[in-house]
Amino acid sequence: MPVVSRRIEHSSSYPFPVAEVHAALTGEQYWRDRLAEVGGDGAALDAITPTASGGVTVTMTQAIPEDHLPSIVTKIRPGDLIITRTETWGPLVGGRATGTFAAEVEGAPAQISGNQTLAGENGSSTIDVNGAAEVKIPLVGGKIESAIADEILRLLDREQEFTGAWLAR
C-alpha cells in the first residue's frame, strides 16, 4: 500500500526588507519571543545553533493538550502530543534564503517535513512553505494527516501574525 501524505502550503508576506526578516529568523531573541507568545504551554527552545555561513538551526519542543486534539487522534493516541520541531535557515544570498522544517510527534508514527524559502523585492518579503504531513496508520492515517495539516496551517498563520508584529516593534 503506497504511503500518501497531505500537502502543506503556506505563504506569509511582510512589509519589511528581506535582510530584516532574515536577521529575525536567524536571531535567538526572535525565537525566544515567538515561543513565549505562540508556542503554547511548556514550549521550550531546545537549541539554536548559528552556522558559519550565516544561517541557523533551531530545535524546539511544543505540546498540544489532549483537549485541543480531534477525537480521531485521541482514540489512537491518548494524552498530550509532544512535538519536536526543527527549522533551518541558510544564509541570505542574492536576496534569498532557503531552509527546511520538520516535526515529529513523540510516540506516534507521524512526521511533518518540507522546505521554506524567504525572498523579497521592493522592500517587502515573502516566506513560502511547502511540505507534507504523513501518518503511517492504516485506514485512518489520511484523516489524521488532514487534522494535523489543518493545525499546522493555523499555527503558521499565528506565527505569521507574530512575526509581522515582532518586526514592527
Rank of each mutant, 00 (worst) to 15 (best):
S113Q: 12
V140N: 07
G142P: 04
D128W: 06
I144V: 12
R158H: 09
A110H: 03
T126R: 15
I144C: 06
D128Q: 13
R154F: 01
E145L: 04
E151W: 05
P109Q: 03
Q111Y: 07
K136A: 13
G142C: 08
S113Y: 07
I152Q: 02
A147P: 04
D157K: 01
G120R: 01
E104F: 00
F101M: 03
A119H: 11
P109F: 04
G123L: 11
T98Y: 02
N122S: 15
I148C: 02
G131K: 09
A147C: 03
T98K: 11
E159F: 00
I112L: 15
R158D: 12
K143F: 06
E121R: 15
T98P: 01
L153W: 00
D150L: 01
G99N: 06
E134C: 09
Q111K: 14
L153K: 15
N115A: 13
G120E: 04
L155M: 11
V135D: 09
R154N: 13
G114P: 04
L155V: 04
T98N: 13
A147R: 03
F101C: 00
A133E: 09
G123K: 12
K136L: 14
G114C: 06
G131D: 11
L155C: 02
I112A: 13
G107I: 08
A147S: 13
I144H: 01
I137A: 07
K136T: 13
A119M: 11
E151F: 07
E151V: 08
V129D: 01
A103G: 13
A132W: 08
E106A: 14
P138C: 06
A108V: 12
A147I: 02
T126K: 15
L155K: 08
Q111G: 09
A119D: 11
V105W: 10
I137V: 15
E104W: 00
V140C: 07
I137E: 08
A147D: 07
N115R: 14
S125H: 05
D157I: 00
I152T: 10
E151R: 13
A102M: 07
V105Q: 09
A102Q: 13
E151S: 15
K143C: 01
D150H: 04
A149H: 01
I152P: 04
L139G: 06
E104A: 11
E134V: 12
N122Q: 14
E134N: 09
N115S: 14
Q111W: 06
D150R: 01
E106D: 13
V140D: 04
L153A: 11
T98A: 14
I112H: 07
R154I: 01
N130P: 04
G142N: 05
P138M: 02
E104C: 00
G131Y: 10
S124H: 12
E104V: 10
P109Y: 02
S146F: 03
N115W: 03
T117M: 08
S125M: 09
E121M: 08
